[in-house]
Structure formats: C-alpha cells, structure tokens
Amino acid sequence: MIDSWIFIICAIVAVVCGFNLVLQKHPIASALSLIGVMGSLAVLYLLLGAEFLAMAQMIVYGGAVMVLFVFVIMLLNAGTEKASTKSWFAQILGLPLLLCFVGLLAYLVWGVLPPLRDVDFGSWVGGTAQHIGELLFTTYLLPFEVISVLILIAILGAVVLARREIE
C-alpha cells in the first residue's frame, strides 16, 4: 500500500518539476528541475523492480549529465531568455498539436491497450544486476560493443569541438 503512496508522490514531483522546466525563464532553474525529475524517476524505476537501472539513472543522469549541463550553463553565463517572434509557426501551432498528441496517447493507453497488471512492489525481482549482466553479455553483446565505440566517438567529438583554437 505504501508503494502506491510513493508512486503518487513521486509522480506529482516529476510532473511539477517537468512543468517547472518548461515554464522557468532561467536555464539554471530548468536544470535543477530536471534533476528533480531524474530523481523521482529513479524512485519509480525502483518501484517497478528495476534496481540496476534506478542506480544507473542516478549515477549517470543525475551525477554526470546534469553536472555537465550545470557546468556549461556556468561556462556560457547563460542568462534569461529574450522574447523572439521569428518562429511564429511553432508559437501558434505548437500547443494545439501538443494537445492532439496528448489526446492520441490517452486514447492509445485507455482505448487500445489490453488490460495490464497492477504494480506490486517486490513481486518481481528479475531486474538485478546479475540478470542484466547475463543478458547484456550474451544476447546483446554486439550492441554493447558497438555502444562502447559510440562512447569513444562521442568523447573524441566533444574534445575536438570544445578545443581552444590554435592561435
């Protein structure tokens, strides 16, 4: 029973932080809201029995990616946004389309999907590191290797791009 309450709290936190991210003017406020979203999502992963991923979420996202974001905001001294009228198309059509989108998703979830099970915390313990490791290094070995190459490339790219020019 308490897991339902945890779910509701974390869901509300996530949604509020999401709204905050969209509505704030200063990037740093948006960044901090995003951290909040990450955190609540990690709790939700835990409720769904994904232990490894919950930890990975906190470490990778919250600990690395968000730090990167904050650092860049500091480096660039990003200020509050200024108003702009250039993309009128997006301004006007964005909200209606979005509502359509939400409506469509709602229809899909409620109308189309077959009845799904209830979430019972602790009923499924198949998300441990051992399980993930087993699958990752047998069935999904190739994607794993490829992904490591991808990270290498990303590092190279970042280094090249952010280098100071040779005077």
């Binding site: 250039k86 993309s87 198309f89 997006a90 059509l93 964005g94 389309l97 979005l98 359509c100 989108f101 469509l104």
Partner: peptide, 16 residues
C-alpha cells in the same frame, strides 16, 4: 526557414 523550432513542430505534426 532555418528555425529549429519550426522544424520541431513539423516533426510533431508528422508523427501525429
């Protein structure tokens, strides 16, 4: 138009 936001909106419309 060169505006990324417009492109994004169009992508949204397309995916819809």
């Amino acid at each position: 138009s060169g505006s990324i936001r417009n492109y994004a909106t169009l992508i949204l419309a397309g995916s819809l």
